[in-house]
Write a protein that binds this DNA or RNA. Structure first.
Lengths: 190, 190, 190, 190
DNA sequence: GATGAATGAGGTTTCATTCAT
DNA sequence: AATGAATGAAACCTCATTCAT
């Protein structure tokens, strides 16, 4: 196995185990076993378990960003751009339930304290959305509320319904997703 | 110290430690120290750590319910009742930040597995809100969406802003709270 | 409850619990509960758990002695006296399975180290049997073997079959008991 | 130290401590210290203390079997085969007093519950003795008694005298051992 | 004299991390 | 570079014993 592959296997094993069992269910020995490497080997790639967990988080951010940015309608109106992002967000999350569960675990945990809520979206990504919301605020299309509040109104419910879907409390389809994203738009639009 | 006081001290110590440091940061020895009792004493009041954690949760539910139900405008219109509940919810949560943090820890943890998301509101309370939403759906005032989705749209952002406030990302005041609750109403109203 | 009754209840509770669950299954709190007294009360009657266990043993010896000595055919021939003792021994043990189990637990345990094997029979009793075996040795009726060996040959198998009966490996009746005791006699007689 | 050596050291330390002090006197920390390993290391070799204890038991059975089977006079008459087994049994037990004490501790303990008394002899071994006794019963050489009773008469006293010897109540030599085994034969022969 | 809540030492077990191979 | 056995601190929990009421 090549070095990159090995590192990737460790990340993947950590992600899966944490998503499925929580941090409590992901001891290093088990991570190593799942990744097909020796326990000591992990420490050649990651300084400590804390570092490993955080790097998994960064890895997820990266993938998440790439997904959400695909086919972003750069020049379209604010509303259309928001609906795009919301839809892609939900579809991505329910299509990657383990990644989603990991992020949920991460947020409420000692590991997540360092990352504030908005870090859920990585820097570049946030800039993009921040820019979108900034433009929306300037043009008076959305309510004049602090950015974190707009984020909460816009994306909080979307993450909630992803969770509900993954836990089988509801069954999302394209039509329902659209109506949910539109409801979020109703919350923020003036 | 009386028996009830001692039990209360243990609950309080657990609540504080979990809220501040997560479950990882609340070993029984530390709980005992904070509560001013010996480690073994805890087990006279709670069968195990699991039971202790769950009882703290139940204790919080009870207090939460009592708070939200105060001055509930029984006969008022749907919109007014929703605004009341939302406002009280936010005010209570930011007024009891440790309780709020504990509940957040609880949800994403092995302990919270048994309690689905909507259980955040206790049974009687939920019935009341369910009833409110049922009435709203029947009269066509709110969008025709599954109940869990309406819950997410209505309360997800409110919990998000409570967290943001407690973590000092934003500063909530009465006026801002009102506008946020109204934005949530916009999300669900037809 | 009178003082003697209370003491007796504690002894009985200890005996039963140890017999049923072993020493491991007889914590002082449980003994107290079964005896219908408070935990601290036990220490007014017995200095420590060790002392309690040992006193239970002495209590059993006493009862055992009284039982075996009933209707002892004082002047009868050696063989007849042996058959009497053996029969009574077995019948008493299988009629008091909890007492029997306690004694078995006691022997192989830290508590039993102080009591050598022959102490199974208390002092007076042992004197009687020692006297019987001494007479038998003198008259040449039994094999010229050390006393502990004769004890082992004579009573070891009887205790074994009591255990087997109590554990339902075999079903003893009067006829089988007689044949077993006679077999033991065959072992020691010249 | 090699892996096998380490495992062996743990087994030996457990065996010695239990033999000398009982189960109560063999906490894992002490076992580890005696074996010259860290406490956690034991759990690489044995899943739990229960498993450790049981494996020590199995290890002893194996050694015991090997010893008793040496020079077994396969085709010899029943009496001679019995005398052989009895003699070897006693000589082995008094030559391995710690092993013998361990087995005694094991029988009267929560650990021994699963193993009924006859399991003292392991499966193959027991089959052999069962076969011997079966043959003896068929040919009418021994008394017509249930197998457990014959076992008790034949081996109970032998184990008793081993214990007496180890505890220095008697001093066994080859001649005395022979006479004891022959006395056991007298007990079972018709 | 009796109570039983409180104690805290000590039990078993887990697991992040190291280091000789 | 990789291994994985070994480590030992620290987790949860039990229970014989004490002492204020």
């Amino acid at each position: 196995m090549e070095k990159a592959d090995k590192r990737c296997a460790i990340v993947r094993a950590t992600l899966d185990l944490v998503a499925e069992q929580g941090f409590h269910g992901a001891p290093m020995a088990l991570v190593a076993e799942r990744a097909g490497v020796a326990a000591g080997t992990i420490y050649r790639y990651f300084e400590s378990k804390d570092v490993l967990i955080n790097e998994v988080f960064l890895y997820l951010e990266e993938r998440f960003f790439a997904a959400v940015m695909e086919h972003y309608p750069e020049g379209a109106p604010v509303r259309e751009r928001f609906l795009h992002i919301g839809g892609v967000l939900v579809r991505y999350c329910i299509g990657a339930p383990l990644e989603f569960r990991f992020l949920e675990q991460f947020h409420n945990s000692p590991y997540g304290v360092a990352h504030c809520r908005e870090k859920f979206f990585n820097k570049d990504n946030r800039d993009l959305i921040t820019e979108l919301f900034g433009e929306a605020l300037d043009s008076g299309i959305v309510k004049d509320l602090p950015l974190p509040v707009l984020f909460g109104l816009a994306f909080g419910p979307l993450l909630d319904i992803c969770r509900d879907h993954i836990l089988h409390f509801i069954e999302l389809d394209d039509e329902l997703i659209s109506r949910c994203v539109e409801a979020c738009w109703d919350a923020i639009r003036r």
